[in-house]
């Protein structure tokens, strides 16, 4: 190999090395710059998002108020549409789109770990048990249900997600106290809960208490429901 040729080859090889070194340096420094996920940043982001959510909720309430105003005005102009408005309000109530209040029962599921009692095994409240409880309440003619203040509608999905239970889009921790409220005939609901063996599956990890409540107020569901695929059958 001639001297010049070998020097050029060495230069090319070192050029590759230089490129690799500077490229790696560039990639790694970019990576460190693009990870500002410190606790402070996350907390700030959460605060901002909460603020945005509050503002949006306020706006939605204002819009709903104006919609109801228009509806009332419309019914005053045309008396025949009063029945339609009543039907609309009933439908909204069924869909969980309005704040409701009434008598019912309050069920509290307290994990035994929270009561400082030794829980049997590592069982926790699961999505299935929560669904079971909601089903039992529905069977006892519950008209509106909330889990930790989250409104459960006919479109609310419940499932486990890592260490949490998702109720719709909201998280519920099975390690903390869970409060289930149901509006309906309080005696009928209580009888349903008194049924023997109703809470057998809950006993290993929690203490379940329930009582009649005379006046429960429930927030509206925070998710708007729309149908994209289902269409009414035209006759």
């Amino acid at each position: 190999m001639s001297k010049l040729r070998s020097q050029i080859l060495i230069a090319i090889v070192l050029m590759i090395l230089g490129f690799m070194l500077s490229y790696e340096y560039k990639v790694l420094s970019k990576k460190y710059q693009s990870t500002p996920t410190t606790d402070v940043n996350i907390t700030e982001e959460i605060t901002q998002l909460k603020k945005q959510r509050d503002e949006m909720t306020k706006k939605i309430t204002e819009l709903q108020d104006s919609v109801s105003k228009y509806e009332t005005e419309a019914t005053q102009i045309s008396g025949t549409s009063q029945e339609t408005l009543k039907q609309l309000n009933d439908t909204r109530m069924l869909l969980g789109n309005v704040e409701v209040q009434g008598q019912g029962i309050k069920i509290t599921i307290t994990p035994k770990a929270n009561l400082d009692k030794n829980p049997v095994g590592s069982d926790k409240l699961s999505d299935r048990l929560l669904i079971y409880l909601i089903n039992e309440l529905n069977f006892s003619d519950a008209e509106a249900i909330t889990v930790n203040g989250i409104r459960v509608t006919y479109r609310t999905g419940i499932r486990n997600a890592a260490d949490y239970i998702l109720v719709g889009d909201d998280k519920v921790s099975p390690d903390s106290v869970i409060t289930v409220l149901a509006i309906g005939n309080k005696d009928k609901l209580l009888t349903g809960m008194d049924f023997q063996g109703e809470f057998n599956d809950f006993k290993s990890f929690s203490v379940v208490t329930y009582a009649r409540v005379d006046n429960i107020t429930m927030q509206r569901a925070n998710k708007s429901i729309s149908m994209q695929y289902a269409k009414a059958v035209s006759k």
Partner: peptide
């Protein structure tokens, strides 16, 4: 010449935006 090659390589690495997939970074 070798030194010039090294400097040239470093400059190319800084200036030229080559996109090597992230999954190859540890091997590099």
């Amino acid at each position: 010449i070798a030194f010039i090659g090294l400097v040239l390589g470093i400059l190319i690495g800084i200036v030229w935006n080559v996109n090597i997939p992230d999954k190859f970074t540890p091997y590099m």
